[in-house]
Nucleic acid binder design. Structure first.
Lengths: 230, 230, 230, 230
DNA sequence: AATGAATGAGTGTTCATTCAT
DNA sequence: AATGAATGAACACTCATTCAT
């Protein structure tokens, strides 16, 4: 399981002056990117401030333009980074080594945990969709990665069907979307939902319950006999 | 089924100067609110421009402050309005008049269609969650409305269980969240998802397929025998 | 000794809605004027807000324009009012009935007390001078009043000299200015002065001491033998 | 005697576009400060315009925020600057080198001339008192400077008393306040006073007469035998 | 590679004032 | 006589970006 963004070198916003780093080109790039991920995920693209990112990264904001060109391109880099990280973690699962049912459970668990441990990802994805996926659309690296990721997941489905573990006739894309949905919505909208449902949704217990419910839901969908037409 | 916001009086952004309106207090308020819903849902809270809202509403921006105080309060009014509209439409369903299974199908269909016809709602909800639901949290009218809405839905579930149409042991809140999730995610993130899955998700056919899949998923979850522990 | 502005009908800024008054033309005028005196004396001319004055006077701000034309003319009315009040109080002293020395003490005491009890006056006078006395200069009623006031004071001086109570050769205008100065500065600049001198200047005791010092200073100036040239 | 603010580089308000300056950080800061002193002293804090200050300083108004944060902090910097300048000039007098009587005359003359040559100072002090000395109160540098300045003046008084040049029993703070008063009032309120007294107060002759009157008044107060109780 | 001063175009907000009722 | 909706011009302040060093 991959860890959250490594903030160990990103001091809190108001921290002490700290000496500027003398010469660490790629280090600077990384710091900027990490700072940008935080900033954009907290405030959105419009709400995110270039100055704030520079401050968080403890670099002069000139460097930000040096490395990334402008705010938009920086956001693109952010989107690419978080997606690549997700896919990398997903690939590391090696779902192929597990029988279909276990692989599916593992996948749902992974999606849930990854979103939980990377709240930036969810918010940034929202933001990218607000921008109508213009970054995603024009990034070759993302389009390629998406394909690979999709293949991985579909392999599990088709194997499950082939082995008789899952019922036939399910569109893998629909199932995949549903898996994502039931994890995603809960975590991105818990602030309003906790009011709507009148309970705390982010306690350890509540999170475990939701994961269990999601696993059961997905397995049910995949295994149950098709409904008779009503 | 309720229609989308009535834009009939909101001319396109760059339209002709148009004569200023003489004295129509509540009309002005309504126009501002409608323009704000559009603007904020397209650009988010930070990205939304007060000038743009004024222009869209065809009023001097001064009136915006006259009626709503400031940008934040206007956004609050927007959030209240879209939620109240949703709940009003939901109440109009009168789910109580249908048998549980039909009521559940009706509910899923309603959620799906409402989100589809009110894309503003989804985006605004995202935005409100980015702001950690600070408006929702402090609005009495919203807290009250949320309660009433929840009661309505729970009534269907408990009736279904009582009549043996649904299996027992399902947490209505989890189910409700799942219904919302499977509709919401597809519609809010179709821009990136259509790339990830390599297909057009917003065609008439695709939309119908997703609704069908969602209905079947929810019914399956509600009706299937509980899984044996793995 | 005249009392401060009669605020009995001017509720505090944030008071309850209160029913609007039906038909009291001159009453409205007075209320506006009193509210304006407070507002301008607290915030200056630029800092004073027309809306605030209307709110304080509990009238619609339209009436303010009805009675006074605009902000500038309202300020002129304010300046006229406070000066006329001062002169009225001054005339009521009837200095003529007292022997010169007593009259002089009475005058110093009066100036001190009047400024003390009418802090608005001092601030408004400052403000009028910031505006280079443009209101004062163009107000016939003020020019006339100033003359009368000056005659009154000079009568005391000349009587004092004639009776041998005061030494000759003092320019009455210079003395009058000095009387005003020693009262005025202390009261208008006590905020900074109390820091500069490291003591509280507005306690009852401090105020009494200052008045005593001022009376003694003025009497000394008026009675002492002229200094030998140094 | 120190000269007024050096406006030599501050062209008149409506002057030609002028080439923007390339890179002169402290020069920019100084120019802004000087422009702000002029603007605030002419129009007050509320009346002073940030745009106008920027224009007078021939910088983009953005720099003003770069250097001073906001209008309020700029005003604070202005107050600090004018006070520090005053105290510097005062210290340069080296009153300690003169016998008490001469030192006192020098002091009165200094105060008079300083106010006369720095009309900004008087107006800004008025403004700061309208704001209830909130800047002065919270500025460490000003509180410290005030102390030092006060020590300086008190030394003259106490030396005068010790040497028998001044009579005992006078509160140095009261005398100091009176010196300031008789200079200050005349110069800050000459616009209205010239109307009240029906004469031009700012001619060379009038100014000399006032200074002479003030010197004589102060010396009289300090030297004359105490008055018998009336 | 790195810095921070400099900038134009905007961005939310407020002002005194007028108009329709 | 009185109200409150309506307005344009200004206002303090911020933004992403570039330039000189």
């Amino acid at each position: 399981m991959k860890n959250g963004p490594d903030n160990s070198e990103l001091p809190e916003k108001g921290s002490s002056p700290a000496p500027r780093h003398p010469r660490r080109p790629d280090r600077s790039r990384t710091r900027i990117l990490e700072a940008a991920i935080l900033e954009f995920s907290e405030k959105g693209f419009s709400g995110g401030r270039v100055d704030e990112i520079a401050e968080r990264a403890e670099i002069g904001k000139r460097m930000l333009y040096h490395y990334f060109g402008n705010k938009e391109k920086l956001f693109l880099a952010v989107i690419e980074k978080v997606y690549l990280d997700l896919w990398e973690a997903e690939a590391a699962l090696e779902l192929g080594r597990l029988p279909p049912r276990e692989a599916l459970v593992e996948l749902v668990t992974f999606v849930w945990r990854y979103y939980l441990e990377h709240p930036e990802f969810i918010t940034l994805l929202n933001e990218e969709n607000l921008l109508k996926a213009q970054n995603f659309r024009h990034s070759k690296i993302l389009r390629a990665g998406a394909d690979r990721s999709q293949d991985l997941v579909e392999e599990v489905f088709s194997r499950g069907v082939a082995e008789g573990a899952f019922r036939a006739g399910i569109d893998p894309a629909q199932l995949s979307l549903t898996i994502t949905s039931v994890c995603y919505y809960y975590l991105t909208n818990h602030a309003t939902s906790s009011i709507v449902y009148g309970r705390r949704l982010m306690t350890k217990k509540a999170l475990e319950e939701r994961l269990a419910f999601n696993i059961e839901s997905i397995l049910t969908i995949v295994q149950a006999a098709p409904l008779k037409a009503s």
